[in-house]
Design a protein around this nucleic acid. Structure first.
Length: 433
DNA sequence: ACTCCACAGGAAAATTGGGGTA
DNA sequence: TACCCCAATTTTCCTGTGGAGT
């Protein structure tokens, strides 16, 4: 008999292919509302034709404004136009946020032979630097080094990393090295020291946020590329655009929403993709963000977050660093994991705060010391679920939350409680502002 | 005005683990 | 195999601090 699943399978493959134009890694041929930026970039990079090295470039703009896509597109066009003369190296500094890994990745992307690739650890920075330099010289042409999320790199050891990498341009003799820096922060340059700033600040291009109608153009064009334009209602496109516009004009989010909406429609055998798909997609999108950021957490951050969630579950009005740390240690015990020091936990708490998974407010509780008051924002049940997907955490059964935190033992019970309730109310109300 | 809690967070030492060299 | 070098991570040690209690 014929496999009854085949018809679905072939359908899926087909749809997956069509939906790749709505994936975040897809680089389109045309960029609506970005022709100014593209023209500027082309003008600057085209100095290669006259055999003079392009100025260094800085691209500014919030996330989802097309910086990365445009940079990739234009630099690829340059490479296509002058294949013998130009090499483009793209590095995401969020993933490679040390001098070491940037240099290794840069070198490895030039080295063609697998066997000569540089190992991901072991070499000295100097040795890698020299090897990269050697490779660059060997090429003797124009190298364009794209540093995406360059601010992540600049923050590391006083921007020394950035300085070393920019120095490549001076040290390379027979090749010319240019840089394209990409960043979300408008004030990025100001945070740099002079020696780095002057090198980088030759040309800059701003990518303004998209408004709703621009987003609609972009979405419509992408939807047309999928060949499913007939299925997608105009109102759905508009809604995606509106949601993206609300999020500082984020095209990435708008496109993701569109893709998820369509996926939901296909899955449910719907004939039309309408607004309700988009609303469903938005929920799914938020959940995916949460799930991914939790999945990507290192083990101890997961345990710590679990401790925060469980603690808040049982004891809403008393979440301070010390208590979460105590419970963290208990969970570590239960999971037979060696626990980390409180100093380290302090840093991990800050990281969780940066990720938006918890909210921390440092404040002084007077007689009861100076600490951070911690809140787990909504979704705590969902967080717990995702946390327990971890293969180490999934043996977690629950712990007894001791109430023996020193704050409560030493202090007069009723008084300390009112103090803390006031504190928590302050925090909650200040968050709403 | 002074104390002192319960940490925050900087600096530096120690540990871990990949990789090279003899 | 023993040993060195190095980056990253974590610990150890430390100084600083806002404000309720006294």
């Amino acid at each position: 008999m014929t496999n009854p699943f085949f018809k679905y399978r072939s359908n899926e493959v087909d749809n997956d292919l069509r939906l790749t134009v709505l994936s975040s890694s897809f680089i389109p041929d045309s960029f609506p509302h970005r022709s100014d930026q593209i023209d500027q970039m082309v003008k600057i990079l085209s100095s290669v034709m006259r055999n003079s090295p392009p100025s260094n470039l800085l691209l500014y703009g919030k996330s989802g404004t097309g910086k990365t896509s445009v940079a990739k597109k234009v630099s690829n066009l340059l490479k296509e136009a002058f294949p013998e003369k130009v090499k483009v190296i793209y590095i995401n500094c969020q993933l490679n946020d040390s001098t070491y890994s940037v240099l290794v990745n840069a070198a490895n992307s030039i080295i063609a032979n697998e066997n000569e690739k540089i190992p991901l650890s072991g070499w000295t920075v100097e040795r890698i630097y020299n090897e990269l330099l050697r490779q660059i010289e060997k090429f003797s042409g124009f190298i364009v080094l794209v540093l995406d999320e360059i601010d992540k790199l600049a923050r590391k050891n006083d921007g020394d990393s950035l300085y070393v990498i920019l120095k490549l341009a001076d040290d390379a003799k027979s090749s010319r090295v240019s840089f394209i820096g990409i960043t979300n922060y408008t004030s990025f340059l100001e945070t740099l020291e002079a020696r780095v700033r002057s090198r980088l600040n030759q040309e800059s291009i701003v990518f303004p946020s998209y408004n709703a109608s621009q987003l609609r153009d972009i979405l419509q064009e992408r939807v047309n590329l999928t060949g499913m334009a007939g299925m997608v209602e105009e109102s759905a496109v508009s809604l995606c655009a509106a949601i993206g516009a609300r999020e500082h004009g984020d095209a990435r989010k708008a496109i993701d929403l569109m893709r998820i909406s369509i996926e939901i429609g296909i899955r449910d055998f719907m004939e039309k993709i309408g607004e309700e798909n988009v609303y469903k997609a938005r929920d799914k999108y938020e959940m995916n963000i949460l799930r991914e950021s939790i999945n990507g957490l290192p083990l101890h951050s997961k345990i710590l977050l679990l401790s925060a969630v469980v603690t808040q579950d049982q004891d809403k009005d008393n979440m301070i660093t010390g208590e979460i740390y105590e419970n963290y240690k208990k969970i570590c015990d239960e999971l037979s994991v060696q626990s980390l020091t409180s100093r380290r936990i302090g840093d991990l708490l800050s990281e969780l705060d940066d990720l938006g998974l918890i909210i921390t407010v440092t404040r002084s509780l007077g007689r009861y010391g100076r600490t951070r008051v911690i809140t787990v924002p909504d979704h705590d049940e969902l967080m717990k679920k995702y946390l327990l997907e971890d293969e180490v955490l999934n043996t977690f059964k629950g712990i007894k939350i001791g109430k023996q935190h020193r704050l409560k033992m030493d202090a007069d019970e009723s008084q300390s409680r009112t103090v803390k309730e006031d504190e928590m109310n302050d925090i909650l109300s200040s968050r709403k502002e």
